[in-house]
Structure formats: C-alpha cells, structure tokens
Design a protein around this nucleic acid. Sequence first.
DNA 1: CAGGATACGGAACCTCGGTTCCGGTTGTCA
DNA 2: TGACAACCGGAACCGAGGTTCCGTATCCTG
Lengths: 200, 200
Amino acid sequence: MSADAGTPPAARPLRADALRNRRRVIEAATEAFARSGIAVPMDEIAESAGVGVGTLYRHFPTKEALFAAVVRHHLEVLVDEARRLQGADDPGSALFAFFGRMVEEASSKQDVVEALNQAGVDFKSASGDLKKEFSAAVAALVQRAREAAAIRADVEDQEVLSLLAGACMATAHLGTGAECRQRVVQVICDGLRSPTAATP
Amino acid sequence: MSADAGTPPAARPLRADALRNRRRVIEAATEAFARSGIAVPMDEIAESAGVGVGTLYRHFPTKEALFAAVVRHHLEVLVDEARRLQGADDPGSALFAFFGRMVEEASSKQDVVEALNQAGVDFKSASGDLKKEFSAAVAALVQRAREAAAIRADVEDQEVLSLLAGACMATAHLGTGAECRQRVVQVICDGLRSPTAATP
DNA sequence: CAGGATACGGAACCTCGGTTCCGGTTGTCA
DNA sequence: TGACAACCGGAACCGAGGTTCCGTATCCTG
C-alpha cells in the first residue's frame, strides 16, 4: 500500500517525526471517516492519532482536504479493481463482480458512501480527476458488458452508476446484513441483464 | 389536503392569526425541506414564511419536530397510496407502480430521501408509528406480489425496502432526469420479478 | 554539541445555527 | 371600546466544531 498517499508535491525531505505523524493522521482519519463519515470532529481524529489539531492542519489545509485524501485512496483501489476486471473473460460477470465488490466496500466505509452521495464535500476540485477516472472505469466495464449483450441495451452508463450508488447507499444505511446486501446486489444485477438475453 | 397536519392535541381554539401563521410555517417548511433537506436553517424558513423564528418555536418545540411533521405528511400520502394499491387486481403491477410513484415523489423531496436515510433526524420517536405503518404498507404490497409469484421468492421485505430507499437516494442525488429515473426503476423492478416467473 | 529550522500541542478565536426571552402588538370577549 | 390573554418579532444566548496562533520541543546539520 502506498503509504505516501496524499503527497502530491513531494520533493521536500519532511522531517522524521513529521512523516510519522502524517501517517498516524491518515490512519486515524481513515478509520474515523469510515466509521462516522465526514461528520466526525477534527479533534477526535487528532486525539485518536495521538497528535494535536494543529498537526492535522499542518499536513492538510482543511478538513475536506483530509477527507478527500482518504476517499481518494479508497477510490484508487476501486478504480484499480475496475481496470483489472476490464480484462476479464466474461464482461457480464466482470461488471457484476465489481458491483458486489463496491457494495461490500461501501458497507464498511461510510465516507465512500457520502462521497458517492456528494454529502457535504466539495469533492470536485479536490479529486475531480479521480472521480472522472472512476466513472470512466465503470463506464468501460458497462461498455464491454453491453457489447457482449450481457446487460440490457436500454440502460445508459449514468443509470448503472446511479444504481451502483443507490445500492451502496441503501445497504450502507439501512441496517442490512451481509447476505441481505448480496441479495440486493443480485436483484439489481438480474435487472441489468438484458431481458432478451437472460442466462439460458 | 388536510391543512391541519401537525395538530395532534387540538381541542384548543387557537387564535386566528396564530392559525394563519402556523399554516404559513408549515407551507414554507415543506418547500424548504423539500429543496434542501433538513440542512436548511430555521431563520430561512422563518423568513420565507414571513414570521420570526420565535413563531416557529411556538408551534414546534424543535427543528426536528417541524421536520418530522412535514415528513409525516409526505409519508401519510405514500402510505395511503400503498394501501390503495393493495386492492389492485395485479399485485405485481401494484408493487411496481408504488415503486415508481415513490421514486418520483422522492426526486422532488429531499427531506423524504433524508428521512428514508435517517440522516440526522431522530425520526423514531417523532414519527415512529408512521414509519412502522409505512414499512407495513410496503410489506403488504410485497407479500401480495410474492403470493402471486409476481416477484422472486428469495427476497425479503427488508430487501425490497432497501431497494426502494436506494432507488430514491440514487435518483435524488445524482443529477438524473425523469426518464433516467424511470429506467432505474425499471431495472430494479425487472430484477425483482421472479426469474422463473418472468412475464410471458 | 550548538544553532537554527521545522514541528508540535492545544488554547483561543470565530462563525454558524438552534433555542430562549421579553417588551411590544393584536385578537377576542364582555 | 377597554382590558386581558395569546401571540409576535427578532435580538441575545449558547454550544459545537473548524481554523489559527504562538510559545515550546524536537530534529537535523555543521
């Protein structure tokens, strides 16, 4: 795992203790945001990281910047996953696998759900490119699935994205168990299969 | 439309201007919450109602109480709709019709989405009974559809509720148009149809 | 090891939004 | 119409949480 996630300019040596603290902060923030979303107070993150709030702001100019950094990392993982699946044999299974993976991921990461939902975060300037990358990666999966007639032809990329987001939000908020989550995904994926080209 | 929505104790005459203001407040709050969800400031509601904040608090003890009253009204409408549909000829169409209706409703009512999502509001004590009523009404629709084999047998009531909520959240937040909304609903409804008992 | 730059902690500051309070106003009733 | 009670407006109050500031501690270099 790239522990330097969130060090765009680089080039600067960065003192030893500073680097240690930065890592602690990212770790604590990742945990806190995953648990309670962006609503978690900065003080709380600082405390669980074992540093003062000042240190948080020395590494990230604003709370949203910290949030964006954390979410960006999660999204990167998902984009990687999507790209890996683009090379899969069965485009249909690939898309559906991603669907399941994503929902499972979101179920334990409140921040991802909120980011998907744009709740409160700017998330456009901060990680606009990545968001675009994410959409593009999913769109590619959809495209391949559509060409293989693995999904119905009358749904746009946008709709699949919406369904993805909806599935994440629904399963993340309503107290649903793992198997419940899977069935929800199953229903949506079945719905996505072309009615004229259902599994034989 | 029952304009007195939110007058549980009643029995008190309530002065003329007070009644007028109460209606204005509810109207303004309904509009404001629908537009921006519970995040809208009380001051703003007061202003657009043409009253002072004090008046808001004279009629509703707390912001959440006001929010709950507004949401309660929306839910009542939906519960009525669900009950009406319970008597429909085709249980499958009834459920799917409700699905579409609900999503359409939520698409213009941010507050309903948030209530569904439990975002911030207590919503349990305030309108707990109604929430239960709502769930029950939907469950009844699901039950009938299941008995008529109009939907697959392997989904629980809870999952349908989740799918409903997910559809609302997805379509409400991501800037999706009306036709896009319909396709999303279509996909989910198709997914809900029993794979072994699809439309002939 | 000394000197200076770099970081740190966390109290103080500021803004925002819910809630309260009270002097003034308005409806109602005799 | 006069008097009282019910209401009203909106300034003031308060707590929460993001952000800033500065004296102090720590790290690195010569």
